[in-house]
Amino acid sequence: MNPYREIMINGLWKQNPGVVQLLGLCPLLAISNNMVNAIGLGLATTIVMSLSNGAVSSIRNHVSNEIRIPVFILVIASLVTVIDLAMNAFIHPLYLVLGIFVPLIVTNCIVLARTEAFAAKNPVLPAMLDGLMMGIGLTGVLTLLGAIRELIGKGTLLSGIDLAFGDSAKTWVLHVIPDYHGFLIAILPPGAFFGLGLLIALRNWWDQRAKTPKTSNTATESTTSAALNYN
């Protein structure tokens, strides 16, 4: 398989950080109470992961093994600071809602894990692609979980999008279930655990379903071959 294609598949499906590796669960569970928050934090994390992977890959041959972890954390912290200041300047209302979870990207284990496991051992371009795909995979899980929780909890999608795009964006909110009184537990912490468990179960079911036909076909071919040989 083409190595770049394999990196993409791993980030989006096979090694998805949200439903396979189960890394970075603190922000994933805490901030996914609606789609807008989930997308905002997911995109910020994706940018940090891609750039930090590229930066670590470019200096990997110039950093001694003894101090690599502090150096990697310093690189990540610098990039998170840039993202934090940019969000504060350009999308301040959303930045206030995300709060401490933007600076906490520095301590997100998936960011450091990818720099250590992949970026520190590979060239710049594959490293950046790995960070990008892992970030997109995490953002996808965040967005889907946020959509499920918001839909069940409020009956809407894209609630709060005006925090990012101004008051004119309030008309973009989708009222999927009109006159819905809400289901509070969906947007509370227990709803995050239930929703994530559902996504993990669906992913595992789909993965097993994809493997089952191959096993069945192989068994059928073996039975047919044995019958022909007997005849």
Rank of each mutant, 00 (worst) to 15 (best):
L98N: 13
L98H: 10
G99V: 10
I100V: 15
I100S: 13
I100T: 06
F101P: 10
F101G: 10
F101M: 13
F101W: 15
V102N: 10
L104Y: 05
I105M: 12
T107C: 08
T107K: 02
T107P: 07
N108V: 07
N108F: 06
N108L: 00
C109P: 00
I110P: 01
I110Y: 03
V111Q: 11
V111A: 15
L112A: 10
R114K: 04
R114S: 06
E116V: 02
E116D: 04
E116N: 12
F118K: 05
F118D: 04
A119S: 03
A119V: 07
N122K: 09
N122H: 15
P123M: 09
V124E: 10
L125R: 11
P126T: 12
A127I: 01
M128K: 12
L129I: 15
D130Q: 12
D130Y: 02
D130M: 04
G131S: 08
L132P: 09
M133Q: 06
M133I: 07
M133H: 04
M134F: 03
G135V: 05
G135Q: 13
L138W: 13
L138K: 02
T139C: 03
T139L: 12
G140D: 08
L142W: 11
T143W: 14
L144P: 11
L144M: 10
L145Q: 05
L145G: 15
L145H: 03
G146H: 10
G146Y: 09
A147R: 09
A147C: 06
R149G: 11
R149F: 07
R149I: 07
R149Q: 08
E150A: 04
I152D: 03
I152M: 04
I152H: 11
G153I: 02
G155N: 03
G155W: 03
I161W: 13
I161F: 07
I161S: 14
I161G: 05
D162K: 02
F165L: 15
F165W: 14
G166Y: 09
K170Y: 00
T171D: 07
T171S: 13
W172I: 01
L174Q: 09
L174I: 12
H175D: 08
H175A: 09
H175F: 03
V176R: 03
V176L: 06
V176D: 01
I177T: 05
I177D: 02
I177M: 05
P178Q: 01
D179G: 05
Y180E: 03
H181W: 00
H181P: 08
H181G: 13
F183R: 12
F183N: 03
I185L: 03
I185Q: 00
I187F: 01
L188F: 01
L188R: 00
P189H: 13
P189A: 02
P189R: 00
G191C: 04
A192G: 11
A192F: 01
F193G: 12
F193Q: 02
F194W: 15
F194N: 02
F194T: 07
F194H: 05
G195I: 00
L196W: 13
L196C: 07
L196R: 12
L196V: 01
G197R: 10
